[in-house]
């Protein structure tokens, strides 16, 4: 699928999507085309549904009892929520970085090798290669190459988050979802993560939830503004930040609420 106006290849298409936590509707009629190998930022005040939306893209909401989704989410044209969908296989295609860095209480090496091992990579040499590549991509290699067998819990917060990025890349995904990946980090680590996002864009479709408007402005190509479970406006980041079409978007961007 190709977007006619921009010429971008569409990686994810969300059509008429409604999402419920039990009886409570959290997302209302979302329609969105997400471009391949671009960074799409999701912004909006707390509770607006942006994280919920992100988590529908790899069915992470499935682990919460009583959630339900209507409508369609297509990745590369195949429906994520059709009963035929292999959820495990899907999650392999879509990596995810969480708000709070969550390395396993295992060694640095075993953290990154976890995904590949599960997906059948057994050869030690292959694993070593994957671990090294992913650590290089996540800009962590130089800091940890001499202590791959030490516990990941001994890393700093920023290093842990980059380790989680390396771990997500190790399963060789097409799409990387990031849920406020830098919100718990200091400015220097945040900058490193942002640089990393710009690098990764070459190979991956990235969707990032952020509270930080400047961050959205710095790293993303497209920005979607959510408010009270609805997608208010979705456009090129530059346009959203300079001359948004909607009054609500403008009010939020200029800090009048949220």
């Amino acid at each position: 699928m190709v977007d006619i106006q921009t010429g971008n290849k569409i990686k994810i298409r969300v059509g008429n999507m409604n999402f419920f936590y039990g009886p409570v509707q959290a997302l209302f009629d979302i329609n969105m085309d997400i471009a391949e190998r671009k960074v799409t930022a999701l912004i909006g005040p707390s509770g607006c549904g942006k994280s919920t939306f992100l988590r529908t893209l790899n069915r992470m909401n499935d682990i919460i009892d009583g959630t339900r989704l209507e409508g369609k989410v297509l990745i590369d044209g195949s429906d994520l929520y059709s009963p035929m969908t292999d959820v495990v296989g899907l999650r392999k295609k879509v990596g995810m970085i969480f708000q709070k860095s969550n390395p396993f209480p295992k060694s640095i090496f075993d953290n990154i090798a976890y995904g590949p091992r599960i997906h059948g990579v057994k050869d030690k040499k292959d694993l070593i290669e994957i671990v090294e590549n992913c650590l290089i991509k996540s800009a962590l290699w130089d800091e940890v190459k001499d202590r791959l067998d030490t516990s990941a819990m001994g890393l700093s917060g920023g290093q842990q988050q980059r380790l989680c990025i390396a771990r997500a890349l190790a399963i060789n995904p097409d799409v990387v979802l990031m849920d406020e990946p830098a919100s718990a980090l200091d400015p220097k680590s945040t900058l490193k993560i942002e640089d990393l996002i710009s690098d990764l864009k070459k190979d991956y479709t990235i969707i990032i939830v952020t509270h930080n408007m400047q961050q959205a402005g710095r790293v993303s190509d497209y920005t979607a503004f959510f408010y009270e479970g609805r997608l208010i406006e979705f456009d090129e980041t530059e346009k959203i930040f300079t001359k948004p079409n909607q009054k609500q978007t403008e009010d939020y961007i200029t800090g009048r609420f949220g």
């Binding site: 992470m60 392999k92 990596g95 599960i118 989680c164």
Partner: peptide, 20 residues
Amino acid sequence: IYKEASLALGASRIETIWKV
């Protein structure tokens, strides 16, 4: 968060339980 991390990496429920 460990469970989420494991599931997000494409591990099945059983794998997540026994390995993480």
